[in-house]
Design a protein around this nucleic acid. Structure first.
Lengths: 192, 192
DNA sequence: TATATTTTTTGATATAGGTCAAAAGAAACT
DNA sequence: AGTTTCTTTTGACCTATATCAAAAAATATA
């Protein structure tokens, strides 16, 4: 899958619109553990992951890293609030594997939103999709036990569980590493 | 504030576009405790609250009501996933005071999105705004103590605290009614 | 392939907030 | 105004998950 496919999967663009739009994206290779954005910086770009996994995270007062979101192939990645409001990011963005991403700046994206009705539609559809995903996570976090949250993760993101550190998943799910380790142990026992 | 103002506050529409758009909305008066949508129904309309407060909630297996979101004057209200995906709603929508709302059907909204680029933009901006709000709530719920969450509520929605039942606020914040009652008691003591 | 570093597991203990039950207070209805 | 119903508060007790500390396992580096 390349950029063209990811976009046309959402909205069908006339060829010349699509080519113009694509010309504003840049392809970047990012090495494992490299940051795209650091806390305090304004996030000036929106990324689309072609290959690899990324995450957004922040530091609690005690210095612990809290993973806020994971981004896999085909997903748009950004420090959303910083990108849209152009204020300093509360989050770090980093890639957890050697990755390839496409990026577009806020200015160019705005330009494309204004130029093409279809692009505006794509923006709207992506936001509502993201919104649904965040609402789902909120419900999982708010009303499920630690074990149920891990099951939710296995269902929604089976892939990620095997690609990233347990500590990252634990903080993403709002529990400690130790708790997740114990849950996993119990699940293995249950299945055999 | 009327519908016209709520819309032009977000995007500036040429007069005749605005009048056309507005003609697709219907004004409805809803009595306290009346539902707009029940669990299992497809939510066919998007509402804008002119006067009153609404909430979305769902029932846990044990029958307890969990408030998912509050909607006050000027906010768009819907069972979002049901409205956009046109599948059965997991949530109830109800008004907690005698209210006046504007409504528009999914079909008409889609028609306006397709007809006016400006309308599509409004849709996109509303989704991103909502997205930011949900992300904020998620962070509050996931990493703050019960007391901190109540403080977050007092800041973000000072108004709501005095308009709706404590039990609704408690479940919205992911805690029991009893816990919220004790927190409130402690806060009062602290302030005097 | 040995050594250093990071990640995961395990154990012991502590605690925030849940549950259950009942009293007190407010609001709604006749 | 009195009665019923709904909401909030209070108390006693319990449990899921956090915290702290250290061992074991996996991974990276020299």
């Amino acid at each position: 899958m390349d950029l063209r496919n990811y976009l046309t999967d959402i909205v069908s663009f006339p060829t010349e619109e699509l080519e113009d739009i694509i010309s504003y994206f840049e392809k970047e290779a990012i090495q494992k553990n490299n940051s795209l954005v650091k806390e305090g910086q304004v996030c000036s770009k929106l990324y689309l992951v072609e290959k690899g996994v990324g995450r957004s995270y922040y530091l609690k007062e005690d210095g612990k890293e809290i993973t806020q979101w994971f981004f896999v192939e085909g997903q748009f990645m950004s420090s959303i609030e910083s990108f849209f409001q152009q204020n300093p990011s509360l989050y770090y963005l980093e890639m957890l594997e050697d990755s390839v991403v496409y990026s577009i700046t806020r200015e160019n994206l705005d330009l494309l939103f204004a130029r093409y009705h279809n692009m505006e539609k794509l923006g709207r559809l992506l936001s509502t999709e993201m919104l649904t995903r965040v609402v789902n996570k909120l419900n999982a976090i708010q009303f499920q036990t630690a074990r149920e949250r891990y099951d939710y993760m296995l269902n929604e993101y089976p892939d990620i569980v095997n690609r990233v550190a347990l500590g990252h998943i634990a903080s993403y799910l709002g529990m400690t590493q130790e708790t997740l380790s114990r849950i996993r142990k119990a699940e293995i026992r249950k299945r055999s």
